[in-house]
C-alpha cells in the first residue's frame, strides 16, 4: 500500500501529541508501518503546532510536505487555514470549530479571518466540522477536545472500535480514562 499521510494541527497545549499517539497506536495495531513526528519545545508554548502521522507498507520520511496530506485534523479554525496547503488534491479536512486568537490578533496587529470553514468549503474541499470544545466540556473537561476529534476521525475510518479503545487505554492515564472514553463516544456521534 502506498504511504498515507495524516496531519494533526493545532495550538501548543491543545493536546495534539496525545491525538497523534492514539492514531499511531491504532495504525500499528492494524499492521501498518507507522511514523509519527511530533514537535516539542518552544512552539508548545501556545504556538502553531503540527504532528505528522504516516502509515503504509514501509514509511520513510517522517514529515509531510505541501500537497501531501490525505487528511488534516485541525483543533482550531485558523490553524486549518494555515495548514490547508499541505492537503493533497482531493484530501479531507476534519476541524474543530474552536477559535483561539493568536497574539497578533490580541494586540490588534492582525485580524482573525472570517468564515474560515465556509471559505475552505468554497475552495472545493471536503470538510467535517465539529464543536469539539463544547463536547469535551460535556464529557467533563475542555482539555478532552483532542479525544473528541479522534472520535470524529474514528467515525470516518473502518478500524475496529476495539483498537481505538485499546489505544485510549494505552495512552491515557487511568484517572482520566472514563472522561476520555466519554469524549471519544461524543465525537463519534457528532460525526454522524
Amino acid at each position: 500500500m502506498e504511504t498515507r499521510s495524516i496531519m494533526i494541527v493545532g495550538v501548543g497545549g491543545q493536546g495534539s501529541l496525545l491525538a497523534s499517539r492514539l492514531l499511531g497506536n491504532v495504525l500499528l495495531a492494524q499492521g501498518y508501518d507507522v511514523k509519527v513526528s511530533e514537535v516539542h519545545g518552544m512552539s508548545q508554548r501556545g504556538g502553531s503546532v503540527v504532528t505528522y502521522v504516516k502509515y503504509g507498507d514501509e514509511v520513510f520520511s517522517p514529515v509531510i510536505e505541501k500537497g501531501e496530506a490525505d487528511v488534516i485534523i485541525s483543533f482550531e479554525q485558523l490553524e486549518a487555514a494555515r495548514w490547508l496547503p499541505y492537503l493533497k488534491k482531493g484530501g479531507k479536512l476534519i476541524t474543530s470549530t474552536q477559535k483561539l486568537d493568536p497574539m497578533p490578533v490580541i494586540t490588534g496587529n492582525a485580524e482573525y479571518p472570517e468564515n474560515i470553514i465556509e471559505k475552505i468549503k468554497a475552495a472545493g474541499i471536503q470538510v467535517t466540522a465539529a464543536d469539539a470544545l463544547s463536547l469535551a466540556e460535556e464529557a467533563g473537561n475542555s482539555k478532552a477536545s483532542n479525544v473528541v476529534l479522534m472520535g470524529v476521525v474514528a467515525a470516518s475510518t473502518d478500524f475496529d472500535d476495539k483498537l481505538w479503545q485499546d489505544a485510549i487505554e494505552q495512552c491515557v492515564p487511568p484517572k482520566f480514562l472514563e472522561l476520555n472514553k466519554k469524549a471519544f463516544e461524543l465525537g463519534k456521534k457528532a460525526a454522524v
Partner: peptide, 12 residues
C-alpha cells in the same frame, strides 16, 4: 495544493 483565500495571521 490549495491555499486559503485570505490573510492568515502568524501564531508565535
Amino acid at each position: 495544493f490549495t491555499t486559503f483565500d485570505g490573510n492568515v495571521p502568524v501564531r508565535p
